[in-house]
Amino acid sequence: MKDLVIEIVKNLVDNPDEVKAQAVEGEQTTVIEIEANPADIGKIIGKRGRTIKSIRTIVNAAAVRQGKRITVDIVEPEDREEA
């Protein structure tokens, strides 16, 4: 599922090499955190959040068969270092 997110996001940004994702598995929910160049964050979110919302919808459709809920979040590289 992480790979699907990476594949979609890489195709949307100007700096595909900087796209990374990390999956944090919970019992029922998986959180996928996307990391990208700060200049690309806006592209991933899209106008009124439409792009990230669409990504979430697609990922959840893909997760139906696994019986899981997936949350997709965007983190900026700095956040990761602090955490």
Binding site: R50, T51, I58
Partner: peptide, 16 residues
Amino acid sequence: DTLKALEYIFNLIMKR
């Protein structure tokens, strides 16, 4: 919803 999301993302990527 899913069909719309797929269509939206797909158009976005193609039009880049």
